[in-house]
Computed example of a mutant assay.
Amino acid sequence: MSAHESLLSLAEYLELPLRAGESVIMMQECDASCGMYVGNASRDQSVLVYHGTIAASIAREIVQRTRTGRNRIEIAGQVFRFVRSAIHFEDRGAVAFEPA
Results as ranks from 00 to 15, higher is better:
88 H>M: 12
14 L>W: 02
34 C>P: 07
21 G>S: 08
71 N>L: 04
81 R>P: 02
52 G>P: 06
63 V>D: 10
92 R>F: 13
38 V>T: 07
9 S>Y: 05
8 L>D: 05
32 A>D: 14
97 F>W: 03
57 S>K: 10
12 E>N: 10
26 M>L: 15
48 L>Y: 06
89 F>H: 12
41 A>K: 02
59 A>D: 06
17 P>S: 11
72 R>S: 14
54 I>D: 01
5 E>D: 13
7 L>C: 07
20 A>N: 08
55 A>W: 01
59 A>V: 08
43 R>V: 08
3 A>E: 13
7 L>P: 00
62 I>V: 10
17 P>M: 02
17 P>T: 03
5 E>C: 04
54 I>H: 04
96 A>W: 00
49 V>Q: 13
51 H>M: 11
78 Q>V: 15
24 V>F: 04
74 E>S: 13
23 S>Q: 00
51 H>A: 10
50 Y>D: 12
62 I>G: 00
77 G>N: 07
95 V>Y: 06
42 S>F: 02
20 A>G: 01
10 L>D: 01
60 R>Q: 09
34 C>L: 08
25 I>Q: 00
31 D>E: 15
79 V>N: 04
23 S>H: 03
35 G>C: 07
58 I>W: 00
38 V>L: 10
91 D>N: 14
38 V>F: 07
78 Q>K: 15
46 S>P: 04
30 C>A: 15
49 V>C: 11
23 S>T: 06
30 C>I: 13
11 A>G: 03
87 I>K: 02
85 S>Q: 13
27 M>C: 05
70 R>V: 13
75 I>S: 04
99 P>S: 05
